[in-house]
Design a binder for these strands. Structure first.
Lengths: 176, 176
DNA sequence: CGCGTGATTGAAACCCTTCAAGTTTAGTGG
DNA sequence: CCACTAAACTTGAAGGGTTTCAATCACGCG
């Protein structure tokens, strides 16, 4: 799984901003949605369900874009928190630049390509969540994102995979 | 969850085709991918995993588009079967028309909108699969697609929800 | 050094699956 | 239109993979 193509959605006069590890970039319930292009560092989006449990929706390392397209599309407050897992350097994007009129033909095509890749990733994820056991999920994660595990605490990986930290720990100990 | 916007991706000289219930429109492993705009009827995509189990990826009733964007984006043979659950009237689309050069500005925008909605749906689905119990999943399905249950066999709904037909049957008997 | 966060390990509980049988429904041909 | 057969749904018992809960361990950092 390769990263997103280079910098679509870009507003010519946006500037790079820096945030320290732990900074919350977006809170659940916000209406003015944001999207971020990550230049350096690592960002995560997650939700907290009705039972108070966290679920990691995605990780965004260098060259990825993160945001809540669902909330934007369906015009409701976001379900997603977004925060920095490392000191991060990013570009703030306006999510509604996705399909605005003034965008050039080329920019539209770039955005299309970007969304297409996102759809592809999500399709894989859905099929994975429906068919794979806990240890299969972890194996797939290692294969798709070999460079990520050492940058992310295991309990967050477990959350991304839809299993508990304890289950992941046991899987890892068996695999030796 | 409302249907897709009216007919993007359209090739002016494509024509409507008719298929009988049970017709397979696309087989797993195919390389020349197809996409379909459903005018009337009901179509489904599904995969068969390494253990031989079926998993319904999506249902496409009237005004929806169905295809394997993942396989198209990442240039590999499709994992998805596509077949008709009812007698169906559809328009065959070329999936690589998504971002082709000759498309007009307006068509590109329509396609962007379409993909945006798809991303939104998939995001909801992922979070649902990670956080919801079997009976919560069924409740969400009824809420999002109230018009579908009486057109689809229950074992396929169960498959879409990532649970067994038996589990769904028991949930339904309790909810009385 | 000590505290806090994250990882590990084990036992019990649980939800869902699996397997099997029986029942209902739908489709088809006579 | 009925009879027959296959498909779909239901129901129950047993089993299993994960979760939950709790305790312990490891480690980085002030």
């Amino acid at each position: 799984m390769s990263p997103s193509p280079s910098l679509p959605l870009q507003d010519p006069n946006t500037q790079i901003k820096f945030f320290k590890k732990g900074t919350i970039l977006q809170n659940k319930g916000e209406v003015h949605l944001k999207a971020f292009y990550i230049k350096k560092g690592l960002v995560r989006s997650y939700t907290i369900d009705s039972k108070g449990k966290q679920h990691v929706f995605m990780f965004a390392p260098e060259e990825w874009i993160i945001g809540d397209i669902e909330a934007y599309q369906y015009k409701h407050p976001t379900e997603l928190f977004i925060d920095c897992l490392e000191d991060t350097e990013l570009i703030k994007l306006k999510i509604d630049h996705l399909d605005q009129d003034q965008l050039s033909h080329d920019q539209l095509k770039k955005n299309l390509h970007l969304l297409g890749r996102r759809v592809g990733l999500l399709q894989r994820r859905v099929l994975m969540l429906m068919s794979a056991t806990a240890s299969e999920r972890y194996a797939l994660f290692l294969k798709d994102y070999p460079y990520l595990p050492n940058r992310i605490p295991q309990y967050m990986i477990a959350s991304y995979l839809g299993i508990t930290p304890e289950a992941l720990s046991k899987i890892r100990s068996q695999k030796t």
